[in-house]
């Protein structure tokens, strides 16, 4: 394979229409020009470098990309960044304290061995976090927790320890 030769030149830009978006991400006001078709997931990950939000399907089933939009859990892969204009977005990076101390939900995951590869984990946690923030009462029965988790796929854990982690998180947060 030869490599020491002139590299090809090409137009670096795409022909995408763009728009100016302004949104708050993890408390910080972000103003950027973005392609109108850019998914919020890609915006967070590649424009802002917040790679804790993962992408597992880009069609709404796996939940890996879950973030909060205006305090409510949502799929960032099914949201254009254009649609998030003017909103407040919270990602997994905002959960732990500044000094790195884990949020009680994260702590519960660790104690319960509720993650293996950790790919589904941020989405799982943001979904749970969103649910814990709702005023609706939590159903902490086995079935209730499983229903809460449904919408987030995990291929590693068989969910058993994630169910336990939700219960533990509820304890740590004084919700039981």
């Amino acid at each position: 394979m030869t490599s020491r030769r002139l590299k090809r030149r090409f137009a670096e830009t795409a022909e995408d229409p763009t728009l100016q978006v302004s949104l708050t991400v993890n408390g910080e006001l972000i103003e950027r020009t973005a392609s109108v078709r850019m998914l919020l997931s890609d915006f967070l990950r590649h424009e802002l470098g917040l790679t804790g939000t993962h992408v597992g399907c880009e069609h709404g089933i796996c939940g890996c990309c879950t973030v909060l939009i205006d305090g409510k859990a949502a799929r960032s892969c099914l949201t254009l960044v254009a649609q998030a204009d003017g909103t407040e977005v919270t990602t997994i990076e905002a959960l732990a304290a500044e000094d790195g101390k884990l949020h009680p939900i994260q702590q519960a995951f660790k104690e319960s061995h509720a993650l293996q590869c950790g790919y589904c984990t941020p989405g799982m946690i943001m979904n749970i976090f969103g649910r814990f923030n709702e005023p609706e009462p939590l159903d902490l029965s086995d079935q209730g927790i499983r229903t809460m988790l449904s919408g987030n796929l995990c291929r590693c854990t068989g969910y058993v320890n994630i169910v336990a982690a939700v219960r533990r998180a509820a304890q740590l947060l004084g919700r039981v």
């Binding site: 709404g60 409510k72 859990a73 949502a74 099914l78 949201t79 979904n127 969103g130 649910r131 919408g151």
Partner: peptide
């Protein structure tokens, strides 16, 4: 209908 994060949007 779907799951809560879908129903939120």
């Amino acid at each position: 209908v779907a799951h809560i994060p879908i129903r939120n949007r």
